[in-house]
Design a protein around this nucleic acid. Sequence first.
DNA 1: ATGGCTTGCACCGCAAGA
Length: 258
Amino acid sequence: MKIATWNVNSLKVRQQHVIDWLELSHVDVLCLQELKLPDEKFPHAEFSVKGYRSWCAGQKTYNGVAILVRDGLEVDEVDIVRNIPGFEDLQQRLIAATVNGTRIASAYFPNGQAPGTEKFAYKLRWLDAITQWAADELVRYPSFALAGDYNIAPEDRDVHDPQAWLGQNLVSPEERAAFARLVSLGLVDSFRSFEQPEKTFTWWDYRMLAFRRNAGLRIDHILLSSALAATCTHCEVDKTPRKWDQPSDHAPVIVYLG
DNA sequence: ATGGCTTGCACCGCAAGA
């Protein structure tokens, strides 16, 4: 099974990119973030004709997440979860589904704006909440994957210029500590389980020719439970759609399981 | 130099992203 995560920065604008990339990658499950559209505008039918069922948690203008599952895979409709249970949140940032017995979450972690701001405090609260939720899910589902835009670069090697970014949002010690707490539940950063090219990133600013200069950050991740990590044969970032016309600023991350 | 692009909203310049 191949699982991927991709922040598309508006599904309305990137719908054709998603369809083209599904045909290119043939992933079994695709987790999407930053749909920026309400549920009634989600293109279920367009994905259906391409062989994918879809579940979304959308909202107007901002946020919004979805999971696409290839026809033939078994999805338990009863345990689809939207939002972090017990965490009051007006922003649509989490959807989880069970696919062939594997629990898969598509998560859009808050950006945080800057350390010290109210948005940063919200990011830390949200990180605490998803950590508690992930702990519960790990008890229920030995095979668990938490995929999404984490908006955290876990280490300096995930940053093109660590000196310039020192202490800033996305790399601050508080965010990295929260990421480490999540990992310490027993999750594995699948990307680092394998040898990877130096300076592999998943996001590049639209400005300053950042993609051409590879001035990026690795902030999109797929964390795996230890049982699932044991079946994982590879993890890679696919920069292909970042080179297309009018691209998302993020590139998809793929894990190969079983 | 706190900008630089891109998006959505809504009526065009602003908020937000990362």
